[in-house]
Design a protein around this nucleic acid. Structure first.
Lengths: 342, 342
DNA sequence: TTGTAAGCGTTATCAA
DNA sequence: TTGATAACGCTTACAA
């Protein structure tokens, strides 16, 4: 059994409360007493029991990080950042992978209600808001959302303007003189994907081009969908001249197919990918990507959550961050041509 | 403030102990009483406070998952699996990213000593064993290691036989008739990398080939190291005919350079990569890889840890798993030639 | 400056 | 089958 406050108090010959004050750096302890206490604490390597402390102070110093899907690269980067911030502020992070299961999400939200965590961050999801709403309405559960929008309730949220991201991508392609832009996207019904489609439409519209549904290739987001997308694209009466792809895996598949078909990127087909990750970094040619400020999202969410925990009431917040276009070889045929001429 | 046992007891008109028995499905509660209690519990959505429960039962049902580096793909898969198993067994997982910092590792191991977790799993690391040894010797801290070997202490451990993995890779290349095999590896001094080098040597030896240091290209493991490796390789008086690369990022870099040089894979240079992940899945041509049973490692470690927590003494365990070679296009020139002839 | 003692919300023991 | 009550290990008034 580990040492307790009581043990230390006995050893030093003072009351438990005095030891408590000493190890918590509180005033009201004589200099000598404090030194002696800390000496003993050090000597016997005493560590306070967090559960007892938590019970007494009504806090756990643990945050729940509820993630819909750990295989999504952008989630990992957000997790990384949240963990970092939380730790700097003296919080631990419980990792909760819902795998897009509503039951698991509910279980994890229960952590909040059972006082096992001081607050929670939810990252993305294809699920409905039901669980969140129930949790949020009950008690004083503290929650911040990333990449997820609740409709009926005002919960602090950090979002990316995906419409803008898609707009930037398509605008860039148009400025390269590449018309006939196909969009290869994931689930048509998902909120995030529909945002990207909206951005795509906006850009076309701003450049006086007509929206043509046959250039919209929707799939489920896997690598093989990229392959299929290319097959469908080249079969069109007027095949596209460029692609805006809404995730990295489909981009990888698409590029593979393009190369296998003996075509060149960007000369024959230009490409912009939504999302930047370790995946896009290994794809050839270097990809023009819509990069999201993932670290910033994680940071804002974590810091806001901790503020919420420590201050009673804070004004509600919905923060919308802008993505950034990073231009590389996959979308710039003119530049490539010049390069190759040299 | 959330409802407590006391509140429920009052509402039902019974003692706290009775409510406790009822919600814990313990015997010794009348059928009617139990039903009534559960009805009220349900009605008011009462959730027991885990800290109080933990304090009373001396358990947290939380595990610490201490990871040296979250940017390593194989770690993510292990994390995923550990989280899954832990959850099935009713444990939460605290994510601890040490970023290979000894101070942070120590902090996280403190969680064990502060009774904030019931046990811990450490995944990989470049650090010395000092922290682990200190923690392990003090108190009855429960720890399992993955991909990390302590020399001075017998701690339950799950390892991969990396010597064997490298051996399989190099043997395969030799069997393709590809001699002059270069090894592109990470830090020469790291334990894991030296194991791979050993496997490389063993294979050469078994095939009666001499070990030639000029074919050993050591770097730090980044993508750019792959580029540099190729430059160094082609500068050799007798350039290698194939590469065994010890991680995915360097493989990506190497392949990029090979392609930019106008060479073909596997016709001009054959490649085997140590490690299989989402990264290798997007690299072209399809990579021959040494695949590690990551899920199995996570599963074994998590299950063993939970056993350790629940049973007092278990025989020490060091489990060494075997990796598997998955053969694809990047290493089989003959097959590719046949394919292309068709 | 120090000590006493009442909580925090459970579980578990022992009596009733 | 139930109920009192003492733990669990800490914090925090309040008193001394």
């Amino acid at each position: 059994m580990a040492l307790t406050l009581k043990d230390i108090a006995k050893m030093v010959g003072v009351a438990e409360s005095t030891v408590s004050r000493a190890i918590n750096n509180k005033s009201g302890v004589g200099e000598d007493t404090r030194k002696e206490i800390l000496r003993i604490v050090e000597k016997y390597n005493y560590k306070p029991n967090q559960m007892a402390r938590g019970l007494a102070k009504q806090e756990t110093r643990i945050l729940a990080l509820i993630v819909s899907d750990l295989s999504i690269q952008s989630h990992l980067q957000i997790i990384n950042k949240v963990e970092e911030i939380a730790n700097n502020e003296g919080y631990q992070v419980i990792l909760c992978n819902t795998r897009n299961s509503s039951a698991r999400e509910k279980d994890y939200l229960n952590l909040l209600e059972r006082n096992q965590v001081d607050g929670g961050i939810i990252v993305g999801s294809k699920l409905t808001d039901e669980n969140i709403i129930n949790t949020s309405l009950r008690g004083d559960n503290i929650l911040v959302l990333i990449n997820r929008l609740t409709e009926e309730l005002l919960i602090p949220t950090v979002l990316i303007d995906k419409v803008e991201g898609a707009y930037l991508a398509v605008k860039h392609l148009l400025e390269q003189g590449l018309q006939r832009i196909a969009i290869v996207m994931g689930d048509y019904n998902s909120y995030e994907e529909s945002e990207k489609l909206a951005g795509y439409k906006n850009a076309l519209n701003d450049y006086g081009l007509e929206y043509d549904e046959s250039y919209v290739i929707a799939a489920s987001g896997k690598k093989s969908d990229g392959h299929n997308a290319f097959m469908r694209a080249v079969d069109l009466p007027q095949p596209p001249r460029s692609f805006f792809v809404t995730n990295e895996l489909m981009t990888a598949g698409l590029i593979e197919s393009i190369k296998m078909g003996g075509y060149l990127i960007p000369e024959d087909f230009a490409i912009v990918c939504y999302g930047e990750s370790i995946l896009t970094s290994v794809i050839e040619p270097s990809l023009t990507v819509v990069a999201e400020p993932l670290d910033k999202m994680g940071k804002i969410a974590a810091e806001y959550l901790i503020k919420l925990i420590n201050e009673d009431s804070l004004s509600a917040m919905i923060k919308v961050l802008k993505p950034e276009l990073k231009i590389n070889d996959s979308s710039t045929p003119q530049i490539i041509n010049k390069k190759r001429e040299d």
